[in-house]
Simulated assay, not measured.
Amino acid sequence: MHYMLPPAMAPAPRKFPFLDQFSYLKIVQPEWSKRNNMNLFFKNYPRSLSHGRLVLAAIVQANNQLFQPGANDCPAVLVLDLEGEMKPEQLIQLAHRIFDLRQEGTATTEREQQLADYLNAESLHGFGMPVPETMGPESCRITAVFIVRKHLPGGHLQSKILPVCVNPDNGVAVVLPVKYWS
C-alpha cells in the first residue's frame, strides 16, 4: 500500500466536482448516530473534508465488519498526528500501544486509564482527544470517525493507514475518499 498523501488534494480549501457533492461524497447518517455524540461527525463532515488538514491516520480499533466486504458503514477510532510529522510505521506502533490499553491493568497513568475506559466503552465517540503524554507527541490526537465503504479501496479496510482530513479546532476527521487518492 502506498502511504504518500495525495499531492493534488493537499491544499485547503479543497474543491470537489459538483456531481460528486451530490452522489459520491454524500453519506447517510444512521439513526443510532443521531442519539449520541457521533452526530458531531455528521454535522462537520463537509467542512472537515473541504477545509481539514490532510494527514495520515492509523486505525486503533474498528468495527470488525469493516475488515471484509459488506454493506454497512461503521465507526472506528483513529490516531493521527496534527503536524503530519510521524511516519506511517510510527503511527501504527502508536495505534497498537493505544489499543493495548484495552487490556485490564496495562494503563500506568490516570489519563491512560481514561483512554482505556473510552476504548472499552465502544459506544462513546470522542473527537480530537490528546494522546497521553506517556505514549506520544502532544500533536497526536485520537478521534472517532464514520467509515464509508464506498470511500475505501475495495469497499473495506485493507490497510492500517488512511489519509484523513482533520479539523484541528474540533478534532473531527474524515477519511479522504479513495477516488481522490494519488
Rank of each mutant, 00 (worst) to 15 (best):
N36V: 10
N36R: 12
N36H: 15
N37I: 03
N37F: 07
M38E: 11
M38W: 11
N39S: 11
N39I: 07
L40N: 06
L40M: 08
L40G: 00
F41V: 05
F42K: 00
K43R: 15
K43V: 11
K43M: 10
K43E: 11
N44T: 02
N44C: 08
N44E: 10
Y45W: 07
P46M: 03
P46A: 04
P46Y: 06
R47T: 04
R47H: 10
S48E: 02
S48D: 14
L49D: 00
S50I: 02
H51V: 01
H51T: 06
H51W: 10
G52F: 01
R53H: 13
R53Q: 15
R53Y: 03
L54V: 08
L54M: 15
L54G: 01
V55A: 12
L56M: 15
A57W: 15
A58N: 08
A58C: 11
A58P: 10
I59Q: 03
I59L: 02
V60M: 04
V60S: 05
Q61A: 06
Q61F: 00
A62F: 06
A62C: 09
N63I: 00
N63L: 01
N63E: 12
N63W: 00
N64A: 13
N64M: 09
Q65E: 14
Q65R: 05
Q65C: 10
Q65Y: 04
Q65V: 09
L66R: 12
L66C: 14
L66D: 11
F67D: 03
F67T: 09
Q68L: 13
P69S: 11
G70Q: 08
A71Q: 11
N72R: 09
N72Y: 12
N72A: 08
D73S: 05
D73T: 06
P75Y: 07
P75F: 07
P75M: 06
V77K: 04
V77T: 15
V77H: 03
L78R: 10
L78H: 08
V79I: 07
V79L: 03
V79M: 00
L80N: 05
L80W: 04
D81S: 14
D81R: 06
D81C: 10
D81K: 04
D81T: 14
D81W: 06
L82K: 00
L82A: 01
L82W: 01
L82F: 01
E83W: 00
E83R: 05
E85D: 12
E85I: 07
E85W: 03
E85Y: 05
M86S: 12
M86P: 13
K87A: 15
K87I: 14
K87W: 02
E89I: 01
E89H: 06
E89N: 09
Q90P: 07
Q90R: 12
L91R: 11
L91Q: 15
L91N: 14
L91A: 14
L91E: 14
L91Y: 12
I92T: 14
Q93F: 04
L94W: 04
A95E: 02
A95H: 04
H96Y: 08
R97T: 13
R97A: 11
R97N: 13
R97H: 10
R97I: 07
